[in-house]
Design a protein around this nucleic acid. Sequence first.
DNA 1: GCCAACGTTGGC
DNA 2: GCCAACGTTGGC
Length: 155
Amino acid sequence: MKYWIIKSEPSCYSIYDLQKQKIGHWDGVRNYQARNFLRDDMKKDDLCIFYHSNATPSGAAGVCRIVKEGYPDHTAFQPMEKHFDPDSDPKNPRWFMVDVAFEKVFPKFIPLSEIKENTLLSHIALVQKGSRLSVMPIDKNAFEEICKMGENIFM
DNA sequence: GCCAACGTTGGC
DNA sequence: GCCAACGTTGGC
């Protein structure tokens, strides 16, 4: 069982969109390191912090769970799609996605500033300088600490 | 909108 | 393989 942080711009897809949909495709990731996590390392029932990036404020919004492990991101094959990649061959897909299920919205949204202030979280990739990955692993303790900050018990 | 940091591309 | 140019991310 592993834990993750996944980022989305809420103007594009927020935790409330996932709440309505119940299950969502985590598609459109076009970064090889993040792709490798999606394709190889995210397993069914792993838990993810749903992080709102490029938001006011940015921060941790809730939790979701992997319900379908990595499979080809078909949006890469469709010219009308925003993240269309003409070089991704359906016979040998370059990009992958997972499906996630809504778990909960934190009763208290946790802005990035508070995550940065928490010394128990100073080691996580999210707050490292220049970290731009949209999918990144997080250890169990840090995951639970973030949940606690959201006034949420998740253990 | 600005800009730092990082990733990708392509000429050589 | 090097590296400049360009594109993207994402905080502020």
